[in-house]
């Protein structure tokens, strides 16, 4: 363990237990400020979730997930199209983003010569891409769809391209982090036994980095599932009443349906939107739970 890590751990322990030997006013005030920040963040989130859950509670029924949206019967409107649409989007976003992201990260980490200007340029761009507003990726996806010759972009493919572009930087950065944390000795051992760089990467480094890669990927996906802005730009319709059947199917997404209903003047629709927010939260929490499970299952210590 490096000196920096152990020092950081020591500091954290002192702050979190409050058992510091330093009893000066300054440090007590700072400790108070830290606690307040923590409390504030958690409380706001909690109040928000509880408030939404209470507002949506009249609509926690099966119609909420099995029925299509209904304007004629607002009291039993459902989000089936949005939920299915979001699930399809997630699968195809992962199919596009994960292999690309992992490949790019492996290249940058294991093969690229960091002194070359083009590699440095790529790296600089990656950092910047992670901070680009989500809506810009929607515009990018529209352009990509147009270049590929698709007349309509409001389909599974268009949405998945937008979301894949959105989370690609996140996946690349976390994968690089994970690959970098694999001890150098593993690689050296493999190379010393006569393996090529490719064999070492494929058989040793990559499998050892799975927990980190999986966690980063799934956290990226849980960000993507809650996005509405790029999907609106891509042209996903707000109202769909059939199930997706393929990548060329028109779909809608859960966050878009929620967005559209929250400003509706009819009480029933806003209640349904609140309930749908809870459904979306459960989907995101499910993904995060999966990330934690994978990390724990494959975690190794050296």
């Amino acid at each position: 363990m490096s000196v920096a890590t152990s020092t950081a751990r020591e500091v954290t322990r002192t702050v979190s237990t409050g058992r510091s030997k330093d009893k000066s006013l300054g440090s007590l005030v700072f400790l108070g400020a830290l606690w307040f920040s923590l409390f504030f963040g958690v409380m706001v989130l909690l109040v928000l979730i509880v408030d939404t859950a209470i507002e949506g509670s009249p609509r926690f029924d099966s119609a909420l997930i099995t029925e299509y949206g209904s304007r004629v019967r607002p009291e039993s409107t459902g989000f089936r199209a949005g939920i299915l649409g979001s699930l399809w989007l997630m699968v195809f976003t992962a199919l596009f983003a994960v292999p690309l992201g992992i490949a790019a990260a492996l290249y940058l980490e294991e093969f690229a010569d960091g002194d070359r200007w083009w590699n440095r340029l790529i790296e600089l761009n990656l950092q910047n891409l992670a901070a680009v507003p989500a809506i810009v990726y929607g515009l990018l996806a529209v352009a990509v769809m147009a270049l590929m010759g698709f007349g309509r972009s409001g389909i599974v493919l268009g949405g998945a391209i937008a979301l894949a572009l959105l989370i690609l930087p996140v996946i690349i950065i976390t994968t690089r982090e994970a690959v970098r944390s694999v001890p150098q000795e593993i690689r050296q051992g493999s190379l010393a036994l006569g393996a090529t760089v490719w064999q070492t990467t494929w058989r040793q480094t990559l499998p050892s980095a799975v927990p980190g890669i999986a966690t980063g990927t799934i956290l990226g996906l849980s960000r993507a599932i809650g996005e509405a802005a790029p999907l609106i730009v891509v042209g996903l319709a707000g109202s769909v009443r059939f199930d997706p059947t393929g990548v060329m199917s028109e779909i809608t997404a859960l966050p878009m349906m929620i967005y559209s209903l929250t400003s509706n003047s009819q009480e029933e629709f806003r209640t349904a939107a609140s309930a749908a927010i809870i459904v979306l939260l459960i989907m995101i929490l499910g993904l995060n739970a999966l990330a934690i499970y994978i990390r724990n299952k494959f975690q190794k210590t050296w």
Binding site: G154, I232, G235, L236, A237, G238, S239, V240, R241, F242, E250, T252, S260
Partner: peptide
Amino acid sequence: VDVTVGES
């Protein structure tokens, strides 16, 4: 008949 309605 599959109808999609957008609101852009």
